[in-house]
Design a protein around this nucleic acid. Structure first.
Lengths: 224, 224
DNA sequence: GTCTATACAACGATAGAC
DNA sequence: GTCTATCGTTGTATAGAC
């Protein structure tokens, strides 16, 4: 599977990420008609990501959000409970997406080495499709208070654990040599993160996701 | 050289990083006695880093800074021109430190492969000694307006270029095989950054800088 | 459901006494 | 040099008309 296939499948599988947001937060969203609410939620979320990724979530004020979405300040509060709640909604959505897409057992290959690279590849593809979301979650996770913070740490370790498990299993089966799977997994993670943390670098150099994956794969295989 | 040696040398070479700050900004710092100003600058800077790295620079307010430093709000303005200026002073200081310590031609080994690992090791050590500074610079660089932003990008690419140059030179000399030095250098960088971006992870697992360097070195050598 | 107008709190920054 | 008190602005959030 290449990125194009993934993108098409992602867009059909999850026709509206904003419909999910709408349904899961129906208690605090005052606008009840999906046909009205969903497009406005999309505007609010995408604009929040756009402004925040430029100057930080704390640096974005709701008047700017109102101006750029074209939705009045008062109306915005029909869609969000508070600014803080908007933050946690976004981060929760990112963590849920990772769990669903990368953690999907049905699609994971059985062979541990294949699974390792499947996870890496899928993570890269997902972070490309949701680049602004991933960037946002990484940058703003620390602003979370106590409970949310632990979730964020859990999430960081979730992918890493999946990777480490593949390495352990492959090492046991004698497919590869890997003395410290946990340490090795910890080195793969930042390579995946670089893709969504510095998109400007790779765009500037004209590197595509598929090319980037090939690089990382080659790099990793050399050490196994 | 191990980390202990580096740390001792760093602390004697740069007796007070805050004296440098004091001297280079004497035009806007209203307090003229070094004996008074330097310790207060230290309080202001270290506390800013502490609070900001918890909740972001925009999330820190000057009343909290005043409370935690024990310096009154009014007095703080004898040391900084504005909050924005405080931000840029910190980031400039980080970039200057990188240039001085990692860019020091006199200490760099001549052999390109040795130089590659010297740069990696020195970068790791410096980022350990100045962890809070590095973390801050990474997280807050985007808040910079126009001019400062370019500096931050320059700085990100500075280390990468040094690494790429080593790889090119080593490849030409036939010491290693490396088809795309630029791409390879771009993969080393995030491995160095992970050390100061997620210190909690490595502390929790009891991994030291020296151990981390050994891991990364082994990892890189396998691909050369 | 969406708007304008406004309440109220928090923040950066300054004035002026000591 | 350092303090307290305060100004003026900006920001989140709500009220109430349409």
């Amino acid at each position: 599977m290449n990125f194009q296939d993934f993108k098409i499948q992602f867009e059909t599988d999850t026709p509206q990420i904003y419909r999910t947001v709408f349904e899961e937060n129906s208690d605090l969203i005052k606008v009840k008609k999906a046909k009205v609410a969903v497009p406005n939620l999309e505007k609010i979320f995408t604009t929040t990501l756009k402004i925040s990724n430029r100057s930080g979530f704390k640096g974005m004020n709701l008047r700017d959000l109102s101006a750029e979405t074209g939705i009045s300040l008062g109306a915005i509060y029909s869609y969000i409970e508070s600014k803080d709640r908007l933050l946690s909604m976004i981060i929760q959505q990112v963590m849920a997406s990772i769990r669903v897409v990368i953690g999907d057992r049905d699609k994971q290959p059985d062979n541990p080495v294949d699974r390792l690279f499947w996870i890496m590849c899928t993570h890269l593809y997902l972070s490309e499709v949701m680049q602004e979301w991933f960037f946002f979650a990484f940058m703003e996770a620390r602003s979370f208070k106590t409970e949310g913070r632990n979730d964020a740490i859990e999430s960081e370790l979730f992918t890493e654990k999946l990777l480490a498990d593949c390495l352990k299993e492959a090492a046991c089966a004698g497919q590869i040599e890997c003395v410290d799977p946990e340490a090795f997994a910890a080195m793969i993670k930042p390579l995946l993160q670089d893709w969504y943390l510095k998109p400007w670098k790779y765009k500037r150099r004209g590197v595509t996701v598929d090319e980037y994956f090939t690089r990382v794969e080659k790099f990793i295989r050399a050490s196994l």
